[in-house]
Amino acid sequence: MSHTAHIPSHRKPRQSASKSALRAGVAGGVLSTIAVAGAAGPAQAEPVTQTIEMPTITSGFSTAVAASAQATQQVALDLETQAHEDAAAEKAAKTAKKAHAEAVRKAEAEKKAEAAAKAKAEAEAKAQAEERAQRASRTAERTTLSASSGSSNSSGSSASAPSSSSSNVSGSAASIVAFAKAQVGDAYVPGGTGPNSWDCSGLVQAAYRTAGIDLPRVSQAQSTAGTQVSLNSLQPGDILYWGGAGSAYHVAIYIGGGQFVGAQNSSTGTVQRSMDYDRPTGAVRVL
C-alpha cells in the first residue's frame, strides 16, 4: 500500500469563456438598471399589462351546432316512429289475413252443415212419406185379408192343393202368405209382435193367427208345431227354421217360388228373400 493518499480536489471546474462573458454582461446590465432607477428618484414604475387574444365561438356557429343536433334527434325520432308504425301495420295485416281465412273457413263449414241438414231433412221426409204409404198399403191388405179369412172360415173351406207359386195359393195358406208379404219393410225388434215391428217368431205367429191357427210364441216350439217336410217338397205357408228341430234359433214363412218372408234382424228388418240367400235347415207343415 502506498504511503501517499489520494486527496480529491475541491476546486470548481473552470467555466468556459462564453459563460463568463454572458455572466459579466448580465451583471453589468443589472447594475446599469439600478443606477438609472436611482437617478430617476422615487418615481414608481407603471405595471406592464399584456392582452392575449383568444379565439371565441361566435353565436351563429353555436346556433348552427344546436340546430344540427336537434335535427339529428328529430330524424332519429322519426325513424323510430316509422319503425313502430311499420311493425303495427304488418301485425294488423297478419291479423286481418288470419281473421279473413277463419271467416272463410267458418262460412264454408256452415254452408256444408246447411247442405247436410237440408239433405237429411229431405231424406227423412221422403222416408216418412214412403213409410206412410207402406203402412197405408199394409192396412188395406190386412183389412182385405181379414175379410177373406172370415169368409173362408165361415164356409169351412180348407187348404187347396199344394202349389209352388204364391199366386196360386188360396184358403188359409193364401191368408198366411198374404199377411207375411204385407209386413215386408217393417222393423225388426226383439220380442216384437206387431203391428209395425216384429221378431221372427212373432211374425210367424201373427200370420197363422189370420188363418185361425194359434202357434207357440218362440221359434224352438214352432219348429216342431207340425209335420217335418223336406225342403224339396215345400208348399206356401210352411214354416222354415234354422238350427235343429226343437232348438231352432230362427223361423220364417215359405211363400212359394223358392222364396220366404221373415223378420231377419235389426239391420234388414222384415224382408222377402230367395232361399239361396240363407238356406234353412228344415221345414214344418202345420196346415
Rank of each mutant, 00 (worst) to 15 (best):
P8V: 04
R11S: 14
R11C: 14
K12N: 15
A17L: 15
S18F: 13
K19Y: 09
S20P: 09
L22I: 10
A24C: 11
V26G: 05
I34N: 06
G38I: 07
P42G: 12
P42L: 10
Q44A: 09
E46Y: 06
V48S: 12
E53M: 12
I57R: 15
T58G: 14
T58V: 07
G60S: 10
G60E: 13
G60C: 09
A67S: 13
A67I: 08
Q70I: 08
Q73G: 15
A76T: 12
A76Y: 06
L79Q: 12
A83L: 11
E85I: 14
E85S: 10
E85Y: 07
A87H: 06
A89R: 07
E90H: 11
E90W: 09
A93E: 08
K97E: 15
A99L: 14
V104H: 06
A107K: 15
E110K: 15
K111F: 07
K112W: 04
E114F: 07
E122C: 11
E122A: 12
A123N: 05
Q128H: 13
A129V: 04
A133H: 11
A133F: 08
Q134E: 06
R135Y: 06
R135C: 09
R138K: 14
T139L: 05
A140D: 09
S154L: 09
G156H: 04
S158F: 11
A159E: 05
A161W: 08
S163D: 06
S164D: 10
S165R: 06
V169Y: 03
A180P: 09
A182F: 01
V184W: 05
D186C: 11
A187P: 09
A187W: 01
Y188E: 02
P190N: 06
G191I: 05
P195R: 00
P195D: 00
D199K: 03
V204G: 04
Q205F: 07
A207V: 03
Y208I: 03
A211R: 02
G212S: 02
G212T: 01
D214H: 08
L215S: 04
P216C: 03
V218G: 10
Q220T: 08
S223G: 04
T224Y: 03
G226R: 00
T227I: 10
V229R: 05
V229F: 03
S230D: 04
N232I: 09
I239A: 00
L240Q: 08
Y241F: 12
W242A: 00
G244K: 10
A248P: 10
H250M: 02
V251Q: 00
I253N: 01
Y254M: 00
I255F: 04
G256Q: 02
G257H: 03
V261F: 01
G262N: 02
A263C: 05
A263E: 04
N265G: 02
S266Y: 04
S267Y: 06
V271C: 05
R273L: 14
D276F: 08
D278P: 13
T281H: 00
T281N: 01
V284Q: 04
